[in-house]
Each structure stands twice: as C-alpha cells, then as structure tokens.
C-alpha cells in the first residue's frame, strides 16, 4: 500500500527524526518525561505551587496543561493526526474541544454555585 509520507518533526521542527520508528521512540521518551514530572510533583507537592491562580491551585493547572500536552502527542503522533488532512483534523478536534469546553463550563459553574450555597447558605450538612 502506498502510504503518504510521515511528517517527522515534533516541537515545531525543533526535533527532527530520521524515520517514523525513531519518531515513535522519541515521542515515548517525551511522554515518559512528562509523566515522571507529574508523578514527582504529585508526590512532593511543592508549597510554592499551592497558591491559587484563576480559582484553582497553580499545581493543578500545571497537571492539566501537561495532560493536554500528552494528549496532543498521543493524538498527533500515535494516532497519526499529524499526517491527516487539515479538514479531518479540524472536524475531529474542534468539535470535541468545543463541546467538552461547553459542558465543563456549565457543570463546574453549577458545582461551584452549589458549594457556595453549602458553605454560606442555610443548608447544614456537617453533622
């Protein structure tokens, strides 16, 4: 089967690989490093990262950003999204991101509101 050539650059061309196999191992190393960083931060929980940024602990923002970075490399390199046409990519990624962001916004907003009722309203639940 004649297959389209793989794009062999990651990190916007910062790292270039010679073959697809080599790129796979390179991405594995990158994902392992990110996971290791996450686990180390999760175990030690540096107190400097415990301050709140935009309503959430800075450490949690770091975890979420690292997770999205990992998701990007799994989708782009393992699932070969990098080699698909731009329209297929947008069809899948934009749809999912829009709907997920919408749902998250609504549910987290509502959860936050209920929490504020619990903690400052008349409902007593700590018995």
């Amino acid at each position: 089967m004649a297959h389209a050539e793989h794009k062999l650059e990651i990190l916007r061309g910062l790292i270039k690989f010679k073959s697809n196999t080599q790129k796979i191992w390179g991405v594995l190393i990158l994902l392992s490093i990110i996971t290791a960083v996450e686990v180390i931060l999760g175990i030690y929980k540096p107190s400097s990262l415990m301050g709140h940024v935009l309503g959430m602990k800075a450490l949690n923002w770091i975890f979420i950003i690292l997770t999205i970075v990992k998701a990007y490399y799994i989708t782009w390199d393992f699932m070969h999204m990098r080699d698909e046409t731009a329209n297929l990519r947008r069809m899948v990624v934009w749809t999912a991101i829009f709907l997920i962001a919408y749902l998250l916004f609504i549910l987290l907003q509502e959860g936050d509101y209920i929490e504020s009722i619990y903690s400052s309203g008349y409902i007593k639940h700590n018995f």
């Binding site: 997920i100 998250l104 549910l107 987290l108 509502e110 959860g111 209920i114 929490e115």
Partner: peptide, 9 residues
C-alpha cells in the same frame, strides 16, 4: 465533567 461537578460541590 460530572466528577468535576461533584468535586467542586
């Protein structure tokens, strides 16, 4: 997201 909802709650 439902987990996040309960957790924020």
């Amino acid at each position: 997201a439902a987990y996040g909802f309960s957790r924020f709650k």
